[in-house]
Design a protein around this nucleic acid. Structure first.
Lengths: 206, 206
DNA sequence: CGTCGCATTGATATCGCTCAAATCCGGTGG
DNA sequence: CCACCGGATTTGAGCGATATCAATGCGACG
């Protein structure tokens, strides 16, 4: 579902290039802008007390980033370009007035937020699962387009996937290997394929 | 920030009581209605393959429930009343037309979604932390109103909290006990208080 | 009372984290 | 073209935090 930047927004935004690792904003900065990713990848991070980075969100081409800025006086976490990226920078007051005046855009924005919310809840669901294998299965099933094809093309490295799943990359490698040995999944390059195991005659219990 | 049900919606909704354990909808049902919780508690659950229930979302008095129904032809998970509850049932077509026609309401709805999204991301952040103690600290810090008071009044049982944190209730009990013994937190009835330990002269490292 | 669910604590098993090391691969500079 | 480098990928070994299984007390409720 990658978006085009809605036409009315194009007039109000300016394009900007960011280098890999460059910060878009820091936690506590006045929230002035919302972003739209044309290319590259940006991430929202918050650093835990031990200095580890916690990945809050990844935005890829065709997605908005830091939408919450509209509702919020300050950024609540750090935004960085994880790869060299081209972004549309949208001053939030323009966005706000557009939402007030453009019926169609307002609807589009609503639907965008709803989808993001659903994606976030899916991720919550995934993180609540115990066991790396379970999370992998959930990931393939829920990221696969519309749950029809149990197959995902990975967008980044396996290390990135590990972060997404909330496990160490070692645990992910091992689990993938053993699932593959068990014939439960296949890997072709950067594509993960979940073979539905016939198994598991379930008892639909209350 | 518990909401009152926005006035224009009151005319389009009907009140309904649900018993504890009663289902509002099942996964796959045509998505016809959005809900607003007046009292009680409702939950979105999806059942994993082992029959365990995965908690996707809890809605408490003053919150909307199943907002995604507006965007979606079918419910994607189960909705049940976890306690006896009084809900406003809002046909989604009414909601949609209200969003199209009532500027103020549309804005309110946007801001609602944005806040929910932020809450969901906070929960993701929490689940990505390793160690029960870390999650508890994060929970107290982020649920505490506006991060000013490091203190939370638990809305449900500790078992519920354990689910929220993605750990077993045993692990939660133990960790709470040891944190209390260490003087890091206090418990008064159903209130958790995080004492900020002076410790941790941090080195702000890149 | 009897039962049910929460709270609590103990014992044990196990999964995933941590630390380590080897390989592979693409890119870069000589 | 080759040597070298950094990051991703793998695999190994060991340990510790959590899950799991169990038992008990306790309060609410019928």
């Amino acid at each position: 579902m990658p978006f085009e930047l809605p036409e009315p927004l194009q007039r109000f935004s300016r394009l900007q290039n960011y280098d890999r690792g460059e910060m878009l904003f820091r936690r506590g900065d006045p929230a002035r802008c919302v972003f739209f990713v044309h290319s590259g990848e940006v991430r929202m991070l918050r650093s835990g007390r031990a200095g580890e980075d916690i990945l809050l969100h990844r935005a890829r081409p065709g997605e908005f980033f830091a939408e919450a800025a509209v509702e919020c006086p300050r950024y609540l976490c750090d935004g960085i370009a994880f790869q060299a990226s081209t972004l549309a920078v949208i001053p939030k007051n323009h966005l706000a007035s557009l939402m007030d005046n453009d019926r169609g855009f307002s609807r589009q924005w609503n639907s965008l937020l709803t989808r993001e919310l659903r994606a976030a809840r899916a991720r919550i669901e995934r993180l609540a699962l115990s066991g790396v294998a379970e999370r992998i299965r959930h990931f393939i099933a829920s990221e696969g387009r519309d749950s029809s094809s149990a197959e995902v093309v990975l967008s980044g490295s396996l290390k990135d996937l590990a972060r997404d799943l909330g496990v160490t990359h070692e645990a992910l490698y091992r689990t993938l290997a053993s699932m593959q040995k068990a014939g439960e999944i296949d890997r072709k390059g950067s594509t993960l394929i979940l073979k539905l195991v016939p198994a598991q005659r379930g008892k639909p219990r209350p």
